[in-house]
């Protein structure tokens, strides 16, 4: 229990430094600290699949971010937007935070899984997670229940994920293409 508080406070402190520091490279390093802290936290929350994926995605993401921010001479942009807009947005964010705290108090406490709480409530249908746990091995033959959910029970999600990834790759490739600007400048050619 205490380990979750320690890791989450570590993540929050790293996020605050990443938001407030002036140097972009320091901010990138703090983002890496957030990612590795989140990976450790997934491991303690009994999610080894997510921990493996998070730690390797974090490494690749840091390579992308450092590629973008290093060797840019003008990375020190200090100050915020106009004063009035800043105050208004901070007030709005604070109000949303207070309302969100009220909403989170209606959830079951940390440590009682939401689907067991839903199973005990009267008039609720049987949660899907219980079916996945009890019949996943028998129906799909995969010992890893997460894998059977991702690729068999809910494979439509994975199909959508593949589509989104494909689209974002096409977008990045098109944006960084070199010929685009020449075509825009010389429409006759």
């Amino acid at each position: 229990m205490a380990i979750f508080y320690v890791l989450l406070l570590f993540i929050i402190i790293a996020a605050l430094i990443a938001v407030e520091t002036k140097n972009l490279l320091s901010a990138v390093i703090c983002i890496g600290a957030i990612g590795f802290g989140a990976s450790l936290m997934f491991l303690f929350l009994r999610a080894p699949d997510i921990a493996i994926t998070q730690i390797v995605v974090e490494v690749l993401g840091l390579v992308i971010l450092i590629r973008a921010t290093i060797a840019r001479d003008l990375t020190f942009i200090s100050g915020d937007k106009e004063f009035f807009a800043t105050v208004v947005s901070i007030v709005i964010i604070f109000v949303i935070f207070l309302a969100g705290i009220k909403v989170f108090q209606t959830l079951p406490d940390f440590g009682t899984s939401a689907f067991t709480a839903a199973a005990e409530a009267p008039g609720m249908p049987e949660p899907a997670s219980q079916t996945y746990i009890s019949q996943g091995l028998q129906r799909t033959g995969a010992a890893n229940i997460v894998s059977s959910v991702v690729l068999d029970f809910r494979a439509y999600d994975t199909l959508g994920e593949a589509t989104v990834l494909f689209t974002s790759i096409i977008g990045a490739t098109v944006i960084l293409r070199k010929k685009a600007k020449k075509l825009l400048e010389d429409p006759d050619k």
């Binding site: 999610a47 994926t53 995605v57 993401g61 689907f115 746990i133 994975t158 974002s168």
Partner: peptide
């Protein structure tokens, strides 16, 4: 523990990397 949020988050992490690159 509940396997359903883990399956959802597994796809969300990789989508996050793709959108970060974009």
């Amino acid at each position: 523990v509940d396997p359903l949020p883990q399956a959802l988050v597994l796809t969300a992490i990789v989508i996050g990397l793709g959108s970060l690159a974009l």
